[in-house]
Simulated assay, not measured.
Amino acid sequence: MLIIGLSGTQLELHEHALLTARGVSGVILFSRNFASREQVTALIDHVREVAGDEILICVDQEGGRVQRFREGFTRLPPLSALGRLHDSDPGAAIDRAEEHAWIMASEMRAIGVDFSFAPVADLERGNAAIGNRALHADPAVAAELVQAYVRGMHLGGMAAVLKHFPGHGSVREDTHLASAVDPRSKHDIFATDLQPFVAGIEARAEAVMAAHVVYTAVDDQPAGYSHVWIEEILRGELGFGGCVVGDDISMAAAGSVGGVAARVAANLDAGCDLVLACFPDVVPEAIAAVQHRRPSPVERIAPLRGAIGSTWEGLVHNPQRDRFIARVTALEP
């Protein structure tokens, strides 16, 4: 039920018990866990030695300013570069989106990461946290590029996670730092921000991450705490049968329901299958909060495990990879 964060570049002794605790499904890695490709590969191997091969390893490796592993990996441009290309050459943008996704996914799979929380399906409409992480302001363009990105991730052996449902791009606030409210009607949200998510679901994305934004015309709870958004709309109206992930419970906007235990419960009660506890200081309390919870359905979580990937040596000797990297990195302004 939980994906937890670790403290540093090596697995600490006290973290062994956290990894093997009931309710822990995976680990999310950040820049604080990265020093080099060799080091992070060894850390991933150590996590699996302690917790077993079934534990999920994930990361935010979007490109641009949200790329946790940099040295030794392809420096990927932000997703907005794909949107800019689409304005002049839609066909090329679709090709580059697939290649961007394949590069990211294949590099992560080569070191043992199961999946990245990608693609960002939010619209580029001025949000402080999203910015150039989004593909485009136009819902139709973003939808087309989201589908291409999901295809590329799948070709790289990686599950796709659409974020931040039902759309974080049209509010100003950064939910890491403050609460965010979107007062628009359900009709307006469906006609705009939700379209890239619908497209990603049609492309068979395996998971959706719910936003901490409150959409007051639909429900008085943030989407990740909302039975209406998760069970009635996402699963009911949109027919999504995959994994729903609650965004990090350490974020400021997650505090609307109370402390750590209340946040975990609110996510799970609303219908989330996995909850992110990204910062080590909240992990013990989050684990305590799930000890008497029913486990999330295995059939929703299992598809997040990565397909068999290339070794790093095999990857770097792939001439197709060189062509993809040359084309994608040329998009950086």
Rank of each mutant, 00 (worst) to 15 (best):
A92M: 15
F115E: 14
E107D: 14
I55Q: 09
C243N: 07
A129L: 12
G5P: 07
S170K: 05
R84P: 02
R263Q: 08
M108Y: 08
R204I: 02
Q195P: 01
A35P: 00
W102K: 13
A128G: 00
I94P: 05
V181C: 06
H227F: 03
I55V: 12
G169H: 07
V298I: 11
D269R: 10
K186M: 08
L304P: 00
C272L: 10
Y215P: 00
D60L: 02
V244A: 08
I94K: 14
V208C: 07
E231I: 03
A121D: 01
N318K: 10
P297W: 12
Q61R: 05
I249F: 10
L56S: 06
I201V: 14
D193W: 10
I94S: 15
S116T: 15
F34E: 06
R84A: 12
T41F: 06
R96H: 14
T9W: 13
L76P: 01
E206L: 07
G255F: 05
A97E: 13
G309F: 04
I130Q: 02
T41L: 10
T329N: 08
G157C: 07
K186N: 06
S310N: 12
P90G: 06
D273Q: 13
A210I: 00
E202K: 09
P222D: 13
I111T: 11
E237F: 01
D281G: 02
A262D: 15
A205F: 04
G26R: 05
A35D: 15
M1V: 06
G169R: 03
T192V: 12
M158Q: 14
A203M: 03
D220E: 15
A205W: 07
R133D: 00
I201R: 11
M104K: 05
H16S: 11
E124K: 12
R125P: 01
I4A: 03
V27C: 09
A148C: 08
I308L: 14
A92V: 05
S88E: 15
H212K: 05
R84V: 07
S185H: 08
R294D: 15
M209S: 03
A110P: 03
M1Y: 09
T41P: 03
I249E: 13
E71D: 15
R22H: 13
V171N: 10
F73A: 02
N132S: 12
P78D: 11
S106P: 06
R184N: 08
E202F: 00
I287K: 09
G200T: 04
G52C: 04
L29P: 01
P119M: 07
P90M: 10
P222Q: 10
L43F: 09
E107M: 12
S7R: 15
A92G: 14
D220F: 06
L18T: 08
L135H: 11
H212C: 02
T192M: 14
G152M: 07
S36D: 09
S170M: 05
R109E: 09
F115R: 11
V290S: 02
N127Q: 01
Q67Y: 11
S179W: 07
A254E: 08
S25R: 15
V214F: 02
I249A: 10
R22W: 10
Q320E: 15
G5S: 12
A191H: 14
